[in-house]
Design a binder for these strands. Structure first.
Lengths: 214, 214
DNA sequence: CGCTGGATAGAGCGTTCATTCTAGTCCGGG
DNA sequence: CCCGGACTAGAATGAACGCTCTATCCAGCG
């Protein structure tokens, strides 16, 4: 007998039919995004995606003639847009940028714990193993980072920070969130994320603000 | 014909014979660590490791009867120890912890650029796609993070920070470095790392220190 | 000399991979 | 009623996967 390498998959029994029945293409993209977020690019097979999405191989290559690479790019863009929405919502709910970012880390920590530490950043896992070799995927990931940075930048400027300060801070805010989510995932603890929130707030508060903050 | 997914591999012609000829086991571990750092766990095959290490399949399973998983754990531990050395050396070269961490980010940025942005964190890529399913690998990665945090913690305490402050800061320093390295890799730019260095220094400088700093 | 056991060597196992291919189904417009 | 394109369906393909297996080599020792 052959001792096959097996990896326990949290086979969450999928909800049979969502409220609005999604189109096949949309179902494929969402499934691909979720699976690659958890298992990475190389760890996720086309067959697995098609099965879990309830689509057939024919459909996969009908909608994504570019194959796995094109599918991965779509998955990253989906994760990108999804997180832009979260980012926008959470940042808008708090006027002070520091408080908003702390709320964001709390939200991320909750989500991570709720998924038993498997749903990390939707872009990182997909992009990491392939960064050097698959330029389309790397470019899509870079765009995602840029979008998120812009959301943070807007919040900091709105709060009255100088443009240069805000632009530089936005970089570090995203880097730190990314790294803290990673650390939280690996150590299976909310601590890295919560501390990142506290420290980022403290850092932001060292910068001067103009009076015309909304 | 079949358009196989091909990923350009930077086939650096390996130095034929190092000064001290390494044992087979050591050669396997180093090769595995380097390859998994670049391609991740799933993206790296046993055959590829054996070929590039100049070992045969028989040797692979002779030294690592636990198969790919055991090999990955050894690779992570190798990367862990390697980075502990770098961390220790760079931190020791500068008395001020902020300056030391800025030097570290410069060093990391250099290394990343020198490798054409493919040699990121030696632990992240291996651990990411597998965190949920392969507990041994996840545990080894968590230990690596803990070791690095301890090195930073020691430096901060040595500089006179309060223990609680230092412990919390060490978390965020590692998170931010990790995230900045990731961002730098994905965006192919040194900027995230250099900004992280600047901001971490600024953050550390907001904490009080006792006078007895060495 | 023969024995022993660590190390090397690689053919071959069954499985899974990404992809291609041919057919078949569905459905609105003429 | 039929046509054409969008979409579904899944068998087939060759390569690569992790791993097992038997065989060989060789240093150390009686």
């Amino acid at each position: 007998m052959q001792t096959k390498t097996q990896r326990s998959r949290p086979d969450q029994s999928e909800p049979a039919a969502p409220a609005t029945p999604l189109g096949t293409r949309e179902r494929i993209v969402r499934t691909a995004s979720r699976l690659m977020q958890r298992q990475g690019y190389d760890g996720t097979g086309i067959k697995q995606i098609s099965t879990e999405a309830g689509a057939t191989l024919g459909s996969m290559y009908h909608f994504f003639p570019g194959g796995k690479q094109e599918l991965a790019v779509a998955a990253i863009r989906h994760g990108d847009a999804e997180f832009v929405d979260i980012l926008g919502a959470v940042l808008a709910a708090e006027p002070d940028p520091g408080a908003a970012i702390r709320a964001l880390t709390r939200s991320l920590a909750e989500g991570l714990r709720a998924s038993d530490w498997i749903d990390g950043c939707p872009v990182t896992a997909t992009a990491l193993g392939t960064a050097a070799g698959l330029p389309d995927i790397q470019a899509a990931a870079a765009e995602a980072f840029a979008h998120w940075r812009e959301a943070v930048l807007a919040k900091l400027i709105e709060a009255g920070l100088a443009e240069t300060d805000a632009r530089e801070l936005a970089h570090t805010v995203i880097s730190t969130l990314e790294g803290a989510e990673l650390a939280a995932q690996v150590t299976r603890s909310e601590e890295p994320l919560l501390l990142a929130g506290t420290h980022l707030t403290r850092l932001i508060d060292t910068y001067p603000r103009t009076a015309d903050a909304g």
